[in-house]
Amino acid sequence: MTATLQVENLETQFPTRDGIVRAVDGVSFSVDAGEILGLVGESGSGKSITGFTILGLIDPPGRIANGSVKFKGEELTTASPERLRSLRGSRIAMIFQDPMMTLNPVLRVDTQMIETVQAHEKVSEKAARARCIETLQSVGIAAPEDRLKSYPHQFSGGMRQRIAIATALLHKPDLIIADEPTTALDVTIQGQILYEMRKLCRDTGTALIWITHDLSVVAGLADRIMVMYAGKIVETGAIDTVIERPQHPYTRGLIGSVPGAMPRGKRLFQIPGMAPAPLNLPPGCRFKARCSRADAVCDTMPELLELNPGHRARCHHPFDAKPLSPAEVVS
């Protein structure tokens, strides 16, 4: 069976006055139907750009410099704009980070949802409206007939995100790319939405890429995890393996900085330093300047090596594949 999404050696670049920014630099991964992939990284690591690249929504002058994106076997990097448009919103949907900004403030919710239905299928407005009502109901919005006639500002943030999710679900897509959709929400609502999204993927076989900077969100949601740093994948594997036995020092640092990983009262772990400037990436391992284990070998770029079955890390000095104890995190 072909994977729902197969990304090979993807490179997205933004030419700027001072040089080329390699936002996504040789990223490869795949997602199967019904699978949830957590894509983790800090701001500027290229995780959101990866999502937009898949959809063909990179703002000029950004461009895909290399690599391939195959959606159910179909190459997207060379597809026509019209083909991409017909896939967007119907087969591949995206949910954005800030629900306050994703709905157009001057258009009614029904306008914004019905246009999505009609962009891909020739259906009457009545049939489209019925579909919107049904979908809104499925994401837990009460009295959808009335709510459809409202404007976005009449909804709370959580409700707006549900509307955005419902909009993404209108055509029962095969792949959903969710770009930190719960970051701006209350923790209680975040929990509900996570639960519903997980259930949805299991029930419908939709593949989900969940982009986030919050490891604790992904830990309870994803099947597999992929950690990005400065445009490159540094570690990938099954969620439990990576969380319990991280091999890359960066992943280890991320886990150590989540509240709860450390004994109560102790200072949270901080990764020293800052992410490298995207225009001025150091040769070799991009994390070496912040890494306690770095030495001369790290001046060459390490490969993404499989150290245990299904668990790969890009490091010359990976940690042992044994469970992490709190004491080790600090060392």
Binding site: F96, M101, T102, L103, N104, V106, E115, A119
Partner: peptide, 29 residues
Amino acid sequence: LMDYVKFARAKGLSEKRVIGVHILKNIMV
């Protein structure tokens, strides 16, 4: 540059509709 314009594109709307409805209605204010 607003997210809702990007979201409108991500919904698969035609460029005509993105510009003629989503952008135009906002600049008319």
